[in-house]
Computed example of a mutant assay.
Amino acid sequence: MRLNYVETGPDDAPVVLLGSSLGANHAMWAPQVDALAQRFRVVAFDHRGHGESGVPEGPYTIDDLGGDVVELLDTLEVDQASYVGISLGGSVGLWLAQHAPERIHRLVAICPPSNTGADPQTWTDRAAQVRAEGTQAITDATLGRWFLPDSKEDIEPVRQMLLDCPDEGYAACCEAVGALNLLPGLGDITAPVLVITAESDTSVPPETVVPLAAGIPGAHLEVIEQAAHLVTYSHPDVVNPLLLAHLA
C-alpha cells in the first residue's frame, strides 16, 4: 500500500528513510530532520495504520510493514537508501536489512523489539484494549515508558500523536509486534548497522538490545545514559551526531 511521507533536503542527495515508533507519525522526527536534511534527502513516512497512511483492517505482519517500505522506495524511484527507525520502525529496518538487503545502504535501529513473539500476550491484550477503548486508554502509560519521570521535554505533541493514531492501525501494528522474531536472520545482515539503546528503556530493555547488536556482523552499539524509550525526541543532542557519523 502507498504510505504517506514528507520529504526534506536536496532532491539529488542520498536518501535516508525515517521509520517511526508504534503510535507516532512522521512528525516525531522533528528533532532530527533539519540536521539530517543538510546532507540527505530525508523521507519521513507513516507506517500503515498511522498518520495519514491508509488503515486496512488488521492484523498486520512485519512482512506487511516492511513490504510497504519497499513499495515506497519503488514509488520514489530510489534503488537504495539508508534507514533510521525507532521501536516498531527499528524492527521494520531489521526486516528490510534481512529481506531486501540490496535496498538498504546503512541501517540505524533504535530501541528495536526483535523477539516479542516469544511472549505475545502483552501485545495481544493491548490490541484488544485499544480496539475496545481507543488509544486514549494507553496514552498515559505509553508516555510513562517513553520519557523519564523528570523529563523536561514538551511531550504534548507526542501525546497528541498517540491520541490521533487510528485505533485499528495501532491495534493491528501491536499484533505485528507480538509476532516478531527477527533473531534468526541477524547473522545474514550485510549493511553497516548502528544499534542504539536507552539505559532506562522499560519498553524495549537494553538487555534485549545488547545481544541483538552482538548478533549482527560488525554492528556498533551505543547505550544512551539517563534516557527512556523515545530517545530521539528526548536526547537529539546525543542521537543526532551518532546518526550523522554512521550515515556519512
Rank of each mutant, 00 (worst) to 15 (best):
R2N: 15
L3Q: 12
T8S: 15
D11H: 09
D11F: 04
D11P: 04
A13R: 01
V15E: 03
G19I: 00
G19P: 02
S20G: 14
L22T: 13
G23Q: 13
A24R: 08
A24F: 13
A27K: 13
A27Y: 00
M28V: 15
F40I: 00
V42E: 02
V42D: 05
V43R: 09
A44H: 07
F45V: 09
D46V: 01
R48V: 14
R48Y: 07
G49Y: 04
H50C: 05
S53P: 02
G54P: 08
G54K: 13
P56T: 07
P56F: 03
P59H: 10
T61N: 04
T61K: 10
I62D: 09
L65A: 10
G67L: 12
G67A: 07
L76V: 12
E77K: 08
Y83D: 05
G85K: 03
S87P: 08
G89W: 08
G90F: 01
V92D: 02
G93Q: 02
W95V: 04
E102K: 03
E102R: 07
E102C: 01
R103M: 06
I104Y: 12
I104R: 01
H105E: 15
L107K: 01
V108K: 12
I110V: 15
C111R: 03
P113I: 14
S114Q: 12
N115T: 14
A118I: 04
P120N: 08
Q121D: 12
Q121S: 13
D125I: 01
R126W: 05
A132I: 01
D140V: 14
G144L: 14
W146Q: 04
K152N: 03
D154W: 14
P157W: 01
V158W: 14
Q160N: 13
M161E: 13
L162A: 04
D164Y: 07
C165F: 13
P166L: 04
E168P: 03
Y170L: 04
E175N: 06
A176S: 11
G178P: 09
L180R: 06
G187M: 10
D188T: 15
V193M: 05
L194D: 07
S200C: 12
E207S: 03
A213G: 07
A213C: 13
A227V: 00
T232L: 12
Y233Q: 10
S234K: 07
P236Q: 02
V238P: 02
N240T: 05
P241F: 02
L242Q: 10
L243P: 05
A248Y: 03
